[in-house]
Amino acid sequence: MTVLRTSNLTKHYGKVKALNGVDIEVRKGEVFGFIGPNGAGKSTTLRILLGILKATKGDAQIFGKDVWHDAVELHKRIAYVPGDVNLWPNLTGGEVIDLFVKMRGGSRTKKREELIHKFQFDPSKKCRSYSKGNRQKVALIAAFSSDADLYILDEPTSGLDPLMERVFQECVMEVKQEGKSVLLSSHILSEVERLCDRVAIIREGKIIETGSLAEMRHLTRTTLNVETKEPMPDLTGHDGVHNVEEKEGAYVFQVDSEKLDEVIAYISSFGVVKIESAPPTLEDLFMRHYEGTGAGGVV
């Protein structure tokens, strides 16, 4: 079941085209990763989804309702964490959390205390004194202590330390288990890899790749670390092999996924002593799109 769908979403600022026909779809119960570098249009897309910006063209619906016209109704079911969390300097963190929960139409819950404890957050300080990570905690605690059906998170962990990042990941997994949906924009690819079921990559206001990680890996390369009895003089020239590095009889190189079979057959003729394979990381995938190089590219 589709929870969120945009079609041909376009946003122009004067002559600048921030978004150029974005199509994404988030299904119920999934964590959807939205990745791209700064300025690619991630935040613009999310802010249109929140009814804060008005799309120039195209259509965006959440729970079958228009994101602009039915914003207030929709927001009762959505929890949002913005990328830059700017808070009121003279209010305390605790006050802001309560305020945010109340603005969604909820009230203070036991969950709030649990999360404050989990995130090791001191709610009695004025927001003026909070670091970036602590301001993000305010937004995250407010988001996860409310009972939403869709969580829209814009780079929520950019200021968190690794321990807190782990807490955040637990929170995401928890809401996923409850059958809620999550739209997570990020450029921490390891995080997306760990959490997300499906991913969309955005570049210059356009979605250039979308699908499950498994599907996307198909289009990319596996890294092999091989030691053979005899040297492999022609490895570099072999079809589908890239970036060969040789060190004391060991070879580290990348293979296009569709050529894997042929390459393995080729290597084995030299007498394999050791072979290790690493699946393509999201980072490889991502870099490939951004460098615009590589065989079998989808660009």
Binding site: R47, L50, P82, N86, L87, F100, R104
Partner: peptide, 14 residues
């Protein structure tokens, strides 16, 4: 300008 209106309008406030 300080990016705080977003917190309000991103919630159920018209």
């Amino acid at each position: 300008n300080k990016g705080r209106t977003e917190h309000v309008l991103g919630r159920a406030i018209s």
